[in-house]
Design a protein around this nucleic acid. Structure first.
Lengths: 202, 202
DNA sequence: ATATATACTGAACATCTGTACAGTAATCAA
DNA sequence: TTGATTACTGTACAGATGTTCAGTATATAT
């Protein structure tokens, strides 16, 4: 943190703790009693210092009107730092290597996506292994050639979709497997969504 | 939601919006003016109804003292629903199929993990493709046979690690590539961490 | 040596805020 | 019909809260 005094850091830390643990912003008097100050003005001085240093902003005359700079608040929720080229000697956590953040949760809208655990190795040549999680965007159809969740007679499988001549071909990506041809007029079939991501826990 | 009237739902929705978008709890008068009420007591009635129905709790005599029941607040942050067997006819979103939640962000502690974008196809046979994100737990060493980030002369690569006879063998998983043998007494070498997950955005 | 920033105390003030009480009107169940 | 619930208006009040001003003391920089 940039140029904070020990006391200012303590107070800022307390603000972060309140937000993280109780999800509320304390009043100046609450902060005051927490630190044992005898005047709320002591807190005010610190808050104004924190504001000047850009860590918070204050809404005038508004109770609990402290807004924590999102850069610091979401420190933990930014996602995983994406590290680029690693220079010799520098620790990997060095910020210079930062290319961005991999925000896994933000990547996929929970209301439109779900995860499906893959069983079997029919898609290994597409880099989808047994036990992988397919991240699926729920949609009723996909374009030819896309990988999708196909639901045949209530059984969900991940395959490449190829509609042709009124049939639906479920094309595996494994030389030892053959495509499955489905006649939608005979067999109960629907698309469960498009596979938009893969996640594997090693 | 359980037994909420339309108005109560509007107000509760407003509370959630404030928390989600501005990260603060409004005062009763702020809610009042938002809805165009002419008395803060109108809000109070609704808040007490919401409290009775268990959606919020109120801290007495405390400004902005509304706490939203975490069950509703974190509704969106549960992660992706993991869907299991899909029964014929049932929509995939049916809760009966729920096996759990894939909480990607919670899976990895941001302070100990980082993501590294894979370049090249030296690990395709391990199911790691060009462009994949390796999720790496920062640690100074790994066991033999584990996949890790190897940093050789400042260049980071993902390989299977095999220490042998004082040398470190960086073993690719691609029949067209050969292992690289590193002499740590000559070449600058260190482990950047263990690969604990793979994520691919299609 | 002087000025500036930090880290408070202490008292007072205006207003923000939750609360209380008294109503009105509409809806709905017993 | 009666009573309860919902959905407000309107007034008033006590206390919570941000703010201001006047100080004190210490450390740090110029």
């Amino acid at each position: 943190m940039k140029g904070l005094t020990a006391r200012q850091e303590e107070i800022f830390e307390y603000l972060l703790t309140c937000m993280k643990e109780e999800n509320y912003i304390p009043t100046m008097r609450e902060i005051s009693t927490h630190f044992g100050f005898k005047s709320p003005n002591a807190v005010r001085d610190h808050l104004m210092a924190l504001e000047k240093k850009g860590l918070i902003s204050r809404r005038d005359n508004v109770s609990r009107g402290i807004e924590i700079n999102p850069d610091y608040l979401e420190q933990e929720n930014r996602g995983l730092p994406i590290v680029g080229r690693v220079a010799a000697g520098t620790p990997i956590s060095a910020i210079e290597n930062l290319e961005g953040y991999l925000e896994l949760d933000n990547l996929y809208d929970c209301s439109r996506h779900y995860a499906l655990r893959v069983r079997g190795d029919s898609m290994v040549d597409a880099g989808i292994w047994d036990g992988d999680f397919c991240i699926v965007r729920e949609q009723p159809n996909v374009e030819n050639g896309e990988i999708a969740v196909a639901i045949v007679e209530g059984e969900a499988t991940v395959k490449r979709i190829d509609r042709r001549d009124g049939y639906i071909n479920l094309v595996p990506e494994n030389e030892f497997y053959s495509p499955i041809r489905v006649d939608p007029s005979v067999t109960d079939f629907r698309i469960g969504g498009k596979v938009v991501g893969i996640h594997r826990v090693l």
